[in-house]
């Protein structure tokens, strides 16, 4: 707590002289129906972003205070204080240096990214950001659309640090790259990724995970497409494969693993968005487990009520039963969320 207060004080001091400070106030009311009962939670998130930019460097801080009530309080406690990111970025002739708590973005941006350090998916917000890592990142531009990104996230014992390199470029309307990353002792990943236009926008990532002696290994990857129809209707589909996942319901471990998002080997992510105008959009996204055929289906709609003020309403339905991964016993039969979000 003392550390959090200190961080808050530092950020506040920086804010006083910062050239740009923005905030987000987000309130999520979540309800779940299961076992003939309705459970509810409320998550109130207060977020402050501080940014100071010059031609030569920038400072960025992202500080959040979350207040939980209802079912969420039982799971996460009364409140949570998070420093998601806080870094200095310096632009020099030999590259861009980022030091502090920052994202280390490798591979294609989006869900089911085999190169992501922390495999987390928020079911209530697939686009929401993640926690940063304390790291030193060095970006070198090799051309206008190509470059090298390398990073090191130090550990108390240096040889247990994470480190990785990504080289990327653009050719024939495709962004493509290769990654080699030591996530932790005994956890390494190497692979390639691409994304580009070929009638429609297609993407793919192929990663090979291996331990230090390469005696244990597995493959992880995805392929997908996305397209805008009539400039209003967006469709995305992504198939995800993780060889370390189970191939049958009986093999589910029931525990979270660091190198996979869910329990099974095959998944399909489907996302569609109808953008009526700046004030209203409707969406539907689904995660489907192709091993047990269970799925989480999430339709919803978002209204922009005024400058910076949004209202989102979404529900989710579960198709799985019994021991299925997305089962009603685990997630309830259905649920929903009402979100007010103010940006200022």
């Amino acid at each position: 707590m003392r550390r959090a207060l200190f961080t808050a004080a530092v950020l506040f001091a920086a804010a006083v002289s910062a050239s740009g400070m923005t905030g987000v106030f987000r309130d999520d009311y979540i309800f779940t129906y299961g076992g003939n009962k309705v459970y509810s939670s409320n998550i109130l998130e207060n977020r402050i972003n501080i940014e100071h930019r010059t031609e030569a460097w920038k400072f960025f801080g992202d500080l959040r205070l979350l207040l939980y009530s209802g079912l969420a309080e039982e799971a996460a406690g009364e409140s949570d204080f998070r420093l998601m990111r806080c870094f200095i970025r310096y632009y020099s002739r030999i590259g861009t240096f980022t030091i502090g708590r920052t994202y280390v973005a490798l591979g294609n941006f989006g869900v089911f990214n085999p190169f992501e350090r922390d495999k987390e998916i928020s079911m209530s917000d697939i686009s929401y950001d993640r926690s940063g890592a304390d790291a030193f990142v060095w970006d070198i531009a090799l051309g206008e659309l190509s470059g090298i990104r390398s990073y090191i996230a130090p550990n108390a014992e240096f040889d247990e640090s994470s480190a990785g390199v990504q080289i990327f470029g653009n050719m024939l309307r495709f962004d493509a790259g290769a990654v080699i990353n030591r996530l932790a002792p005994g956890r390494n990943v190497a692979g390639i990724f691409f994304k580009g236009d070929l009638l429609t926008n297609i993407s793919g990532s192929f990663a090979y995970h291996f331990n230090d002696g390469a005696t244990e290994n597995f493959f992880e990857g995805n392929v997908g497409f996305e397209h805008f129809f009539s400039a209003k209707f967006f469709v995305q589909a992504l198939y995800y494969y993780n060889e370390s996942g189970a191939n049958a319901v009986a093999d589910y471990s029931g525990e979270a693993a660091t190198d996979r998002y869910f329990q099974a080997r095959h998944y399909l992510f489907f996302n569609t968005n109808f953008i009526f105008d700046e004030f209203f959009s409707a969406f539907f996204y689904a995660f489907g487990n192709l091993v047990d055929s269970s799925a989480i289906l999430t339709p919803g709609a978002k209204w922009t009520l005024n400058n910076g003020l949004d209202l989102t309403f979404q529900v989710y339905g579960i198709t799985g039963t019994g021991e299925d991964e997305f089962s009603m016993a685990e997630f309830g039969k259905f649920g929903g969320m009402i979100r007010f979000e103010a940006k200022f």
């Binding site: 994202y103 941006f109 929401y128 962004d175 429609t200 926008n201 397209h227 400039a231 209003k232 953008i275």
Partner: peptide, 17 residues
Amino acid sequence: PDADDVMKIAGSMLKQG
């Protein structure tokens, strides 16, 4: 900025408002 990351967008998006 929320993700501090770049996303390549489908060319079909160019006609979007």
